[in-house]
Computed example of a mutant assay.
Amino acid sequence: MRNPLSDKVIDIKPSGIRKFFDIVQDMDDVISLGVGEPDFDTPWHIRDEGIYSLEKGRTFYTSNSGLKDLKQEVSNYVKRTQGVTYDQASQIFITVGGSEAIDLAMRAMVNPGDEVLIPQPSYVSYEPCAILADAVPVIINLKEENEFRLTAKELEESITDKTKILVLPFPNNPTGAIMEKSDLEAIARIIIEHDLYVISDEIYAELTYKGKHVSIISLPGMAERTIYINGFSKAYAMTGWRLGYACGPEAIIRQMIKIHQFAIMCAPTTSQYAGVEALRNGDEDVDMMRKEYDRRRKYLLHEFDKMGIDCFEPFGAFYVFPNIKKFGLSSDDFALQLLEKERLAVVPGTAFGDCGEGFIRISYAYSLEDLKKALERLKHFISELGK
């Protein structure tokens, strides 16, 4: 029989995060710090709005671009937080999570052979999405000594005459790194000079612990060359609702909606009504969760210091990215042995790019009680390695 499979798809590696998640499912007494999912329930008033929409029979398709009320609330939110105005009718549309927006932006913007710059370590979807869009992913290896920020020098050195898009993944998964305004200003000058476009994934925008999150769209000349992506999964603990959005220039958004129209139709209607409530009345919920994540972040860093584990201080998302090179194991071996010997699951840094070697990702989207138990197991594991 003829091979039914695409060579391009076969060559894409499965997610390294899910590899460990699948192993954990078949083990008992495991504490997992591997999955980036809030341990909070979706706030009740948001769930209640979704329930109410069902009770009222609002189970129809929405327009391809999403509910008008939700798009208007997205516009209000971006204006309030970043000072940038997007027209709800032509520059915003609602997606099935932020991940769909990443995929659609790639497919709408690149031609075969265009280069997409992807700073790593970073979220696992960017590189496969670029490949599936027939682009050429070009990896920029971020460095621990720079707190895993993208520097102007690193960006400049990676640009060729084929470069079209820079993926900007901050606050960052897996490192927790952020880009401050001065960092963004330095790279914005280069982006404009080389006439590049940006896909800015800001799903962790609300989870910033050092001042206020600054988006590159707030800088002069950048909104018109950026696809701004955000969503509800992390800030509002709405992972299973599968709801995100994209904002950007009308010409690009129109083509993204075209693909969405044929592949998806629209985001879940119930989720969209819940999203309206989240943006209108969810600020206090976000603030509460952010404060609790910050408490856990500080606890982990304090305990790492006591254990002699090196870890730069991350100021975003809900991950820490400790350096485990001193223990003489690869990231994969460290994570596998920790799982086998101590029943503690973390993700090897190499799941997020080759430059993640020598690091592990630990999520603190778990209760403080679970984190304390986990660190006791980690402490015992490290002490045994030293014998």
Rank of each mutant, 00 (worst) to 15 (best):
V24G: 11
P220K: 12
G176D: 07
L375R: 05
V124Y: 11
L371C: 05
R80P: 00
T59P: 00
A133V: 01
Y209S: 10
D287M: 15
I324E: 01
N146D: 15
K164M: 01
D22N: 15
D310S: 13
V78H: 00
I10A: 10
K8S: 04
S363M: 05
F170R: 01
I216A: 06
K372A: 08
F93G: 06
M179H: 12
T269Q: 08
I199L: 10
K291D: 12
P174I: 11
S32K: 03
E115G: 02
R343T: 04
E37Y: 12
D310H: 09
R47M: 08
A108K: 03
I165G: 01
G97P: 10
C266S: 15
E193D: 12
P249L: 05
E37I: 15
P220V: 04
W241T: 04
S125Q: 09
D48I: 12
K341M: 10
S218E: 11
G50F: 09
V138F: 03
V24I: 08
C311L: 09
G50V: 09
L378F: 00
V78S: 03
K68T: 15
T175S: 15
F20K: 09
S182F: 00
P38Y: 00
L5C: 07
S367H: 10
M1S: 12
E37H: 05
D354M: 06
F21R: 13
I264H: 12
A267W: 11
E127Q: 11
L344Q: 10
L150K: 09
L132S: 06
V110G: 02
I159Y: 01
R149D: 05
E73L: 11
E147V: 04
R254Y: 13
M256A: 01
L219E: 05
I46M: 08
K325Y: 05
C129D: 14
F262C: 05
T95P: 04
Y366A: 14
S215Y: 08
A223T: 13
I10L: 13
E342D: 02
A188M: 13
E292A: 06
L150H: 07
L375M: 12
E157W: 00
E340A: 15
I131S: 02
I17A: 11
R2H: 13
F170E: 06
I102G: 00
P43G: 02
D310R: 14
V198I: 14
T208P: 01
K298F: 08
E156T: 10
Y204P: 00
L67H: 04
A267L: 11
V167S: 10
A235M: 02
K56M: 14
I362F: 00
L150P: 09
A263P: 00
V198T: 06
G16Q: 11
L207F: 12
F315H: 14
M179V: 11
F381K: 01
M27G: 01
F352D: 09
Y364P: 10
R80Q: 13
I216Q: 05
R377C: 01
Q272M: 14
S218T: 12
G57T: 03
E292P: 06
P128M: 07
G316E: 06
D28R: 11
P174N: 06
T95N: 10
S182G: 00
K153A: 05
Q120N: 03
Y123R: 12
H45T: 02
L70T: 04
L150E: 07
N323F: 03
L207K: 09
K68H: 09
L368C: 05
A101R: 04
L336C: 07
Y209G: 08
A223E: 13
F21D: 14
F170S: 06
